[in-house]
């Protein structure tokens, strides 16, 4: 299995960059705070442009780290919400597909084949997965198209896409 060290998705990349910035900036903040404290201990004075600048830098860095942490948390929450939404949609799509299959009265074998057609597998691939002859799959596909009153693969698939795009009110109350 591939170890995705550098995430492929834009949001995950953003989160990784944010985390890296937080790490480096936090260490810089630590350095400046330690430096200010050290200078205070040796010097005991807070005046002078050097001290003021260092103090401002320390405060700005700490503020930056806090801000970036809030940003990262927000981004992570959005990513997790999106995943939840996908999970819900995934479950409902399965329900929708099942609803159609029941309506058409597909047999169990036909259901298997129909799902694989929806997933974009061609007849040969389906035959390999199901360990049957290509002719059997072709016959099953023909029966599926007949039962769903579609004239082929493309129209069959578009039935489901149409259902998703139409914004059916029955599905609104998820």
């Amino acid at each position: 299995m591939k170890l995705g060290l550098w995430p492929a998705k834009t949001k995950e990349r953003r989160a990784t960059i944010l985390a890296g910035l937080i790490l480096v900036q936090a260490l810089c903040a630590l350095f400046f705070i330690a430096d200010v404290i050290e200078d205070l201990r040796l010097d005991g004075r807070i005046d002078g442009p050097h001290m003021v600048l260092e103090f401002v830098a320390a405060v700005a860095l700490v503020g930056g780290v806090i801000f970036l942490m809030i940003e990262l948390r927000g981004l992570l929450a959005r990513m997790s919400d999106m995943q939840t939404g996908l999970d819900i949609a995934h479950g409902h799509l399965a329900d929708i597909i099942e609803g159609f299959f029941d309506e058409w009265g597909l047999t169990d074998a036909e259901r298997d084949v129909a799902i694989m057609i929806l997933k974009g597998l061609d007849n040969d691939a389906i035959a390999r997965v199901r360990n049957t002859a290509a002719g059997t799959v072709r016959a099953q596909a023909t029966r599926i198209y007949a039962k769903s009153r579609t004239d082929g693969r493309a129209q069959f698939i578009s039935l489901f896409v149409e259902e998703l795009l139409a914004g059916n009110t029955q599905l609104g109350d998820i």
Binding site: D95, I96, E98, G99, F100, D102, E103, L159, E162, E163, A166, N168, Q170, L171
Partner: peptide, 9 residues
């Protein structure tokens, strides 16, 4: 096209 009610039950 809509989903048949009882079939989902």
């Amino acid at each position: 096209m809509s989903i048949p009610g009882p079939a989902l039950s």
